[in-house]
Simulated assay, not measured.
Amino acid sequence: MRIALALSLALWLACVPAALSSVMARIDRATATGAGKPAFVIDLFRGVGFDVSLLATGETIADWWVEDPSRVVARTDRSGRILSLRLVDLPAVVPSNRNWTTLKVLAGDPQGRLSLLHFVVRFQERAPPRAEHVRYHGLEVLPAAPAPASTGPTPLR
């Protein structure tokens, strides 16, 4: 019975179109901290969650905030390394009239150093969104790439 169930699940998963599968965007830590690059834009759709993952960097989320808290709610997972975002309407908080806000995440590394990650969150009001409108379901921040080794000539001594 278990084998038949496993085979039917595998067959069903093989038939799911690629457009409906979850796609994680991946950016390097330098982009997330704003080191000379534009901020990553998170498209937040009503009814579709979005995760920001710091698992690859080993950092934990110390705090987070958004400029427009009437539209975005978030919570971290038990490890403190994944922030889950949702688009909402909180009538008790006066919203701005923009269709975007900023998200800032204060992240701490295992050595206790803190850094600030910056993102732009765009509100997409289409409900329910079609699969081709949702580019990413999450974002993974990758560790900074090591500095490239010098390929120049070795000085003589």
Rank of each mutant, 00 (worst) to 15 (best):
M1D: 14
R2G: 14
R2D: 14
I3Y: 15
L9I: 09
L11E: 13
A14D: 08
C15K: 10
C15P: 04
V16Y: 01
P17L: 13
P17Q: 14
A19T: 10
L20H: 15
S21W: 14
M24V: 13
M24Q: 15
A25F: 03
R26S: 13
I27P: 01
D28F: 03
T31K: 06
A32W: 00
A32C: 04
G34Q: 01
K37Y: 07
P38N: 02
A39Y: 09
F40K: 00
I42F: 05
L44I: 04
R46H: 11
R46T: 11
G47C: 00
D51K: 04
D51G: 04
D51E: 12
S53A: 07
L55D: 10
T57C: 07
T57V: 07
T57W: 00
T60M: 08
T60Q: 09
A62F: 05
W64K: 06
W65E: 14
E67D: 13
P69C: 03
P69W: 02
R71V: 06
V72R: 00
V73N: 11
R75A: 15
R75M: 14
D77M: 06
S79K: 08
G80T: 05
L83I: 04
S84A: 07
S84F: 03
S84M: 04
P91L: 01
V93M: 07
V94Y: 04
P95F: 02
N97W: 10
N99R: 12
W100I: 08
T101C: 05
T102Q: 08
T102F: 08
L103R: 03
K104C: 12
G108N: 12
G108F: 07
D109Q: 07
D109F: 04
Q111N: 15
R113D: 13
S115T: 04
L117S: 05
H118L: 11
Q124I: 06
P129W: 02
P129H: 00
P129M: 03
H133D: 13
H133S: 11
V134L: 01
V134C: 04
V134G: 03
V134S: 00
R135A: 13
P143K: 03
P143Y: 02
A147D: 09
A147S: 12
A147E: 10
A149E: 11
T151M: 13
T154F: 09
P155M: 03
P155C: 02
R157S: 12
